[in-house]
């Protein structure tokens, strides 16, 4: 029989973090890819369309009334070019939010994560595999949006290419944090709590107008929130006016991603491997 051969091949060796990590992230990603292939493409297309529609409406509609604005470093730019990086940062966040809703479903309804953790996979495999898939989708949206922006003549600096990895980092950090948060949520309605945070962030994180319109106290609050870091970072890249504050933005997202993954892994372990 093949039993003996298999037993040897199958049984993972004992190692540190063996209970946390099964070195098999690709299996989680493969499953996600299969599910995506079966899913309706409408959802994916809508995620891509959202920032494009905002750009068309606000950037060109409202932009016609506003005219030229001052970008980073006092560089004059069209209103559409001014909001384009902010819309990209927002779509990275919203894509992660959409994926976190899926994660909620897999956690509480389809019990997918429970199934995964009852195999040789560890919680770290599950968390990282799911987050990487969220990130790949973020990459796809970023590429799509950048193509549109380039066609519209909004890309004027080679620095602007950094918006793509920038958007992926933003998506990664948000997906990690959302996944961590989602593990605390027990009912569908509670998902709106996250919406209640992302919606105002979208409107007020210097997305459509500069931060300087606010009083100092409000500025501090907004600067503490993640989306502002994303908007400011991508806007600097878009304008080709990059200063050292970008390092702060990068550090902010790296820390946020690490916190998110730690939280998500710890929570999955606590929920399923008690």
């Amino acid at each position: 029989m093949t039993q003996a051969r298999l037993a040897v091949e199958l049984v993972p060796e004992s190692r540190p973090f063996g209970a946390l990590y099964g070195r098999n992230i690709t299996a989680v990603m493969q499953r996600s890819w299969m599910a995506t292939k079966n899913a309706t493409w409408v959802v994916i297309v809508s995620g891509f369309l959202e920032p494009v529609l905002y750009l068309a409406s606000m950037g060109y509609g409202l932009g016609a009334a506003i005219g030229t604005v001052q970008g980073p470093g006092g560089v004059p730019m069209s209103y559409a070019a001014y909001i384009a990086p902010a819309l990209l940062a927002t779509s990275a966040m919203n894509g992660a939010l959409y994926d976190s809703n899926n994660m909620f479903f897999k956690l509480n309804h389809s019990k997918l994560y429970r199934v995964m953790l009852y195999t040789s996979l560890g919680p770290l495999d599950v968390a990282i595999g799911e987050i990487i898939m969220a990130l790949l989708r973020g990459l796809l949206y970023a590429l799509g949006f950048m193509s549109i922006a380039a066609l519209a003549g909004l890309i004027t600096s080679p620095w602007a290419l950094l918006m793509i990895p920038g958007a992926v980092l933003i998506a990664f950090s948000f997906a990690s944090l959302f996944m961590g948060c989602i593990t605390f949520i027990k009912r569908f309605q509670q998902l709106d709590w996250i919406n209640m945070l992302t919606m105002p962030m979208f409107l007020f994180s210097a997305t459509f107008f500069p931060l300087s319109v606010y009083p100092q106290a409000v500025q501090v609050v907004i600067q503490a929130l993640p989306l502002w870091h994303g908007v400011d970072m991508l806007r600097q890249f878009a304008a080709g006016q990059v200063d050292s504050s970008v390092l702060v933005h990068l550090a902010y997202f790296v820390v946020m991603a690490l916190l998110g993954i730690t939280l998500a892994t710890g929570r999955l372990r606590k929920l399923f491997l008690r």
């Binding site: 070195r23 989680v28 499953r31 299969m34 599910a35 997918l112 040789s120």
Partner: peptide
């Protein structure tokens, strides 16, 4: 896994075991 087909359920589950 309701999001994937019958055969894929078996395949993916095997992949979880490496």
């Amino acid at each position: 896994d309701e999001e994937i087909k019958v055969r894929d359920n078996l395949y993916v589950y095997g992949r979880y075991f490496g």
